[in-house]
Structure formats: C-alpha cells, structure tokens
Design a protein around this nucleic acid. Structure first.
Length: 771
RNA sequence: UGGCCCGUCGUCUAAUGGCAGGACACCGGUCUUUGGAACCGGGGGUGGUGGUUCGACUCCACCCGGGCCAACCA
C-alpha cells in the first residue's frame, strides 16, 4: 500500500471528510496526454474506483487562453476513456468558475490581502529578490482597499491593456518560500478563450485557480506531482483567507513518472511536432497516449506499468525495460502469431519438385490456447528466410543456418545449406539447400536434434507489407533538456518498405495486433494501413537474449540499453571527508562556549551540540536541571532523543504544556528504575499531550507491565511450537530472528510485556535444543 | 549561499521500533517447433558517522548526495 492510500485509509477512519473520497485529474488542454499523465490518471481514477462512493473529476485546467484549444480537450477525453477510465457526469472546466473566482479575489481585496500592482513585468521580477536575498515591496503595495477594488473591477471590465496591472496577494516579500512573495493572482489578457470567448479580459493564475477549483468541487484529496511542493503553502493560505468551506481539500505530492529514453515535457513534445521531427502528436514514437496507442501499446499494458511503478515521494527514474515488460506481458496473451520476413534471402530447396505446393498448419497462438485455431502456411521449392538467420561465418554460439549446417523451418521441415551463391560484390544472393522429407510437418526422427528454428515464407505466396521498426525515441536514457533534438535516436524508426508476411495476414484491418514470430509485436497502423496497403508498427521487440549476449560481447553496437548493468553515467563517489566532530558543527563562538559548559556538566558531545542549537530544549534543560541536578546527562539525552521526536517537528507549541518539574521527575524515575525506559516514553507522550504532574501522567498512561516469568515463558514456548521453522533457523545462526519472537510477544501483549525480560527468556528457550 | 522535499538490491517499491520482502533486470537450470513463453533456483540492498533503545530502514544530530523554487505558464 502506498503512502497516499494509507493517508486516505487514515482519513476514512478519522472521518475527516465524512467518508468521502473525491479526487480529480486536472490537465491543461494545451497538448496531448502522455505516459506521465497516465500515472496520475491511474492514481486518481483508481483511488475513486477503490472506495465505495469514490469519485474522480475530470477538470480541464483552462486558465491560459493563449495555449488552450477545444481540440486538445477532445483528445484528452478520448485518451482517458481509451486508458479505461470514466469521469461519468463529473466533467468540469476551471473556466466555468471564472465568475466565482473573481468574487473570491474581491474578498481578498476587501480584506486588504490583495492589491493591484501596476509595475512592469521586469520590475516585479527584480523586486522579487532571489532565493538567498529578500525581495522588496512594490510601490503599489499600500494602495487602499477602495482603490484596489476600483482598479480590479476596471481590470475585469477590460479598461486596461495587457500587462498594465496585475492582482497580487499581499503576503511577504521577504518570505523564504519564493512562491509566497506576493504571488500574482490575476493578469490581464485580451485573448480569445476557446470556451469563454471574449468574456474575460483577466485570467486567474494557477495558484489562485487551482486550490479554489478544488474547493468549489469539494475535492478531498488533491494529488499532484513533486514540483508543486512549494505551491502547497499558497494553496493552503488562499483557502484559509478566502474562508473556503471546511473540510478543505489538501494537496499531496507524489513523484512523477520519469521513463528512461523518454521525455514528458509537453512543451518539448510540442516543439518536436512543430519542427517536424515527429510527424504528429500521435507519431508512434511519441510517448503520448495517442502515439502509444498507434504504436500498438494497450491500455492494459500502461496500467500494468503504472501498477509496477507504484506511488511514492522518492525522485525516481523507471527503467525502459519495465515498460517493455508490461507491453510484452499483455501482448503475449492477446496477439496471434504470424511469420514475417523483414530482409528476404532467397532459398531454393533443390530436392523439392518445382511447381508443387503443400500446406503446413500452425497454431495461431502457442501452446494449447483454447480455441485459438490454426493458420495455413504454403510451402514449396522456393522460399524466403530472414537474412540475419544465415551466417557464412557464424559468431560463437550462433545456431541458425550456416554453410553445411541444418535448421528447422518452423512448422515445416529441416533443411541443410549445401551451396552459398554470391554476386560479384560478394553479397550472398541465394542459398541452395536440401530438405529432409522425414522431418516434414514437424516430425523429429530420434537422435536428430536441430538447434536452430527459423521462420520462412513461400516466395510466391508471401504478401508484401510495409513495416516500421519503431525504437526508443532518444539515444540516451536522460535526454539533456538543452538539446532534445541532438539526443533523438536516429534509428527511432526504420522503415522496411517491402517486408513479407504470410498470406493469412493479407486483409488485416487497421488496429490489429500480431506477434511476428521471433521479431516482436506489431500493430497494423490505424491511419496508414488499409485494404490495399499493409502497414505495421513495431510495438516492441521480443525479449532477446541472443542480442543481449552480442551487445555484451561488443558494447556500443546498439547504444546503451537502460537495462544494461553498466550505465554510462558513472558516479565517481565524491570526495571522502573526515566526519566533523559535534563541536565542529557549531556555527558561533557563543554556541561553542555553551557547548563546553554542557560538556563540563557531563552531557555527551552529541547531546550537547543538539541542545545548544535548540533554545526551547535548552530552556527546558535548565529548568529540569534545577529540579534534578544529578541527572544532567540523562535530562540532556531525553531532551535530544525523545523530546524532539514526540514534538514531531519544529512546532514548539506542545512544549509549553510540558512541566519542567514533571519532566525532571520522569527522568529521575527512569534513572532509578522506578519506570522502564519504555514506560518513560509513554509517560512523556502523555505529559506532552495533556500536561500535568508526573503522577497524573502516570495515572493516565496505561503502564501495566507483564514481567511474570511463567506467563512470558508460556507464550514463548507457544511461539516456538507455532513457528518451528523460525526457531530452527535461529538455532542455525539466524540470530536476527530473536527480534521476531520478542516482537511477537510484544504484539500479543499489546506492548505490555517487559521486552528485556522477554528477550532474555527467548534467548534461553530458543537456544535449548528442540525435540 | 536561503527554504522545502527526498535517499532501501542495477531499477521501481514494501516493511504500528521486532524475519529487510516483492517486481523488473541479471545469472543458472527444466521444458519447448519462437535465442520467445512458462516453471524452478541463484546472486545482489537500508548514502556516511555518531547517538537513543533489549532491539533502528524506521527515532535524534551532523555530514554527504539528489530534486524543486526567483513565467503576467501549469
């Protein structure tokens, strides 16, 4: 279960959203959906489907009139449906909320939390400062509410030209989060909106429109990719300050899908289409859903990939092999088999009568796939095989056709190569072979084991087809963002104008999957293929252990593969540096002075360094020390190791509740073994959440402890009986399993057992020889 | 010289403080009329250093490494 699903389960349990799960997929209709969007679609729609009453909205985030088109909306709808998801009646447009958004903006203006800035774009940029220097206030920042309202209303009325004013939130120009430095809320844009026409001369910015659209739609979980992390702060700020209804939607970020050899920047994909490097958004080499579909990738495969990749916050790159696996895994089950000869080499069977034809039959699907039926393969004196299935000088391990050698023609018979015919240039033009009638129809006489099995086609019955050998879009796993074009794989599409396919393939309708045996999975092009012209796109090659072996032997023959063990981008490990001592990590002389004071009191170096850095902890330390002077070292250790954690973060509000006296008493109780360390932690948690004295917290916390040896022994012996294999493994040296047994006891006693006693007993019981 | 986020097999991803597991890739084997598929087996991991704890991938500190943020884009 991923962290988002865990969070939703938690929310469901606590009733945070009254049991509602409402997600949304919010693309901007300025291009085509790609494989990266697929992850988000699977997540958002998947989440809705997994929960009773769950809903996922499709919202077109159309707040930028200059880039958006109805055509893209239609394409997106088609692609989402194709992927297998349905928004039912929940189709929305951010532009439908323009009026509502405008009113929210007026709320901010009237609260004095938004102002009209009449600076130029450059001025605004300059005054924003940098990540290390604060920004400076705009001269227009202190306009009166009345003036702001008037100006903003006139912006809306269309009185001003583009760029003359913007509406900004009034937050803090020195904020450490750049996004919070008075973010722009509205800009003036006299553009035609594909949906709203010319009704609006002002358009809301993403940060303003997005959270409010979520709120308007009563979204519960607003999921987006990691790059919006910094935007979460403004998301929450706006909802609070416009008094959006509670419970409010919450933004959670997850890692985007990044695939080796692929880019998912809509801007760059658009550029490749515009410049003609790609024939269109649906070019089979494109990572767009339209391109993948045309290439023959199935929705099931894409969903499978998303499934395998999972959802996490870790910045990740997915091996291209994982994509290929997902595609093959699906196509293997659904694609009927056929023969295809890409690079024909003439083969004459000298002992087969000219003019005669016989028919071999072959299964449409391998094995005994029920009801898949058979196909017919005509056979005769003159056939064609793939040129790469013959080698005059075979590399070691090659087991296809060689001079004087034998191969099996799949589903037909074995042949022996007697003569190699070449032209003046030395190129092989024909093989003269003899066939073995005893092997006809696939019979295999005893003791005759032929290693190589190749596909073939009868020359005069083969059908011509155009085959497009699609390969990875880029030549390198991580195309540099500053030179996308230079990184393109020059062999991303090799067109074989006259390949040959078996007769049964003739008349294949567009949009049909095949496995061309030993070559890979192919898909009849939905656009270019038709009655009179067969065009196939290669969806993916077969898994190719022979090719992999050759590449290993001579790397560079086919460029690096994502799945190769050695990637070209090596890390040099970085410089090894001597670790700093705790004292050396201190910034100022003052800190170092206090550090030495603490050390002289007997506080450990690590604890002292941490204490010195935290004023809150230091204050508590001093107060607690007054109560329990002999316990300085323990107090410091508790403060550093447990107190910070229970606080959860830098939020020090809980700290106020902690009575230094109670805290000191607690440390003393543990030091004197009046409480175990474990119990001490429980009590500290109680002290932090409810305050009060040590006695009160002790009473509130359930501290009953099981340390009765007989009870614990019984439990442990029961466990040894229950898990004899684990007990045996422990005796064989897997000492880590001690933790398993201790853990089981702790779990079954709901944490009430004394772990030290359990551990000691368990060791004795487990070490005793079993019976 | 900032803030926020993130570091688990080669890759992706799990593990209320208690057995470091799964998938892809890789290697080996069985079987096979696809150098395919299926099945079986194998190697391989918690960025580092300290600390807390009976016990740390998990908590604390520091270090190292990576990502994001200074569009009137989203």
């Amino acid at each position: 279960m991923d962290f988002i699903r865990s969070m939703i389960s938690r929310d469901l349990k606590t009733g945070k959203y009254d049991g509602r799960v409402v997600t949304r997929f919010p693309p901007e209709p300025n291009g085509f959906l790609h494989i990266g969007h697929a992850k988000s679609i699977c997540l958002n729609f998947g989440l809705a489907a997994e929960h009773a009453g769950g809903i996922c909205h499709l919202r077109l985030d159309d707040t930028n009139p200059d880039t958006e088109k109805a055509e893209f909306v239609e394409a997106m709808k088609r692609d989402i449906r194709w992927l297998g998801f349905d928004w039912e009646e929940h189709l929305y447009h951010a532009s439908d909320y323009f009026e509502q958004l405008y009113r929210y903006a007026l709320v901010l203006v009237d609260k004095g939390l938004a102002y009209v800035d009449s600076s130029t774009e450059e001025e605004i940029r300059e005054r924003r400062g940098s990540v290390t220097t604060p920004g400076i206030n705009s001269p227009y920042r202190d306009r009166s509410r009345e003036e702001n309202r008037d100006l903003f209303q006139r912006m809306r009325a269309g009185e001003f030209p583009d760029g003359s004013h913007v509406l900004r939130a009034k937050i803090d120009m020195a904020h450490r989060n750049m996004i919070m430095r008075d973010p722009l809320l509205y800009r003036i844009r006299h553009s035609h909106h594909y949906r709203q026409g010319d009704d609006w001369p002002i358009y809301p910015m993403y940060d303003f429109a997005h959270c409010l659209s979520d709120s308007v739609e009563r979204i519960t979980h607003s999921l987006c990719t990691l790059e919006f992390e910094n935007n979460r702060e403004i998301y929450d700020w706006l909802l609070v300050h416009v008094d959006a209804p509670v419970p409010r939607p919450e933004q959670t970020e997850f890692a985007p899908l990044v695939l080796d050899y692929v880019i998912t920047s809509k801007r760059k994909l658009k550029e490749l289409v515009r410049t003609g490097h790609m024939r269109g958004w649906d070019d089979p080499r494109m990572p767009t859903l339209a391109g993948l579909r045309r290439r023959g990738v199935t929705p099931e495969a894409i969903r499978k990939l998303c499934d395998m990749v999972g959802v996490a916050r870790t910045q990740s790159r997915v091996d291209f092999g994982k994509f290929e696996f997902a595609v093959r895994d699906d196509l293997n089950r659904r694609a009927p088999r056929a023969f295809c000869v890409l690079d024909p080499l003439k083969v004459v069977l000298t002992n087969y009568p000219a003019g005669r034809e016989e028919i071999f039959s072959a299964p449409r699907m391998p094995g005994d796939a029920a009801g898949s039926g058979t196909r017919e393969l005509p056979f005769g004196r003159e056939i064609r095989i793939d040129r790469e299935d013959f080698a005059e000088e075979p590399p070691p391990g090659f087991h296809r056709l060689v001079p004087g050698g034998e191969v099996r023609l799949k589903y037909a018979c074995t042949i022996r190569c007697d003569t190699v015919v070449k032209d003046e240039a030395g190129r092989v033009t024909e093989l003269r072979c003899s066939f073995d009638p005893a092997t006809r129809g696939g019979l295999a006489p005893q003791g005759r084991r032929v290693r190589g099995i190749i596909h073939w086609l009868k020359a005069d019955r083969a059908v011509r087809a155009e085959v497009r050998l699609i390969d990875r879009m880029f030549a390198v796993p991580e195309p540099p963002s500053d030179d996308i074009v230079g990184a393109l794989n020059p062999d991303s599409e090799r067109i074989v104008a006259s390949a040959l396919v078996e007769p049964g393939v003739a008349g294949t309708p567009p949009g049909t999957h095949y496995q061309f045996e030993r070559h890979g999975y192919f898909f009849s092009d939905p656009v270019d293929s038709g009655e009179d012209r067969l065009v196939f796109n290669r969806t993916v090659t077969m898994r190719d252990s022979w090719g992999a072996r050759l590449r290993r032997r001579s790397p560079g023959i086919d460029g690096p593969r994502a799945s190769d063990p050695e990637r070209p981008d090596g890390d040099d490990g970085g410089t090894i540096r001597r670790p700093l001592s705790p004292e050396e990590t201190l910034a100022s002389d003052e800190e170092r002075r206090r550090f030495r004071d603490l050390r002289s009191l007997g506080v450990s170096a690590a604890a002292a360094a941490s204490l010195v850095r935290s004023p809150t902890a230091m204050e508590l330390f001093e107060a607690a020390r007054a109560r329990y002077p002999e316990g300085v070292a323990s107090i410091a250790a508790w403060l550093v190791n447990d107190f910070t954690r229970l606080l959860g973060s830098d939020d020090r509000t809980d700290a106020a509740r902690l009575e230094p006296v109670a805290f000191a008493d607690l440390v003393r109780a543990v030091d004197s073994e009046d409480l175990s360390h474990r119990q001490g932690r429980t009590v500290l948690a109680a002290l932090l959440t409810r305050g009060g004295s040590l006695e009160e917290a002790r009473a509130a916390a359930d501290l009953a402890e099981i340390d009765d040896e007989g009870t614990l022994r019984d439990m442990l012996e029961g466990l040894v009986e229950e898990f004899p294999d684990k007990a045996a493994a422990f005796r064989d040296g897997r000492t880590g399993l001690l933790g398993f047994f201790v853990g089981q006891v702790m779990r079954r006693t709901r944490g009430k057992a004394d772990p030290r006693a359990v551990s000691r007993l368990a060791e004795g019981i487990l070490s005793a020889p079993g019976d």
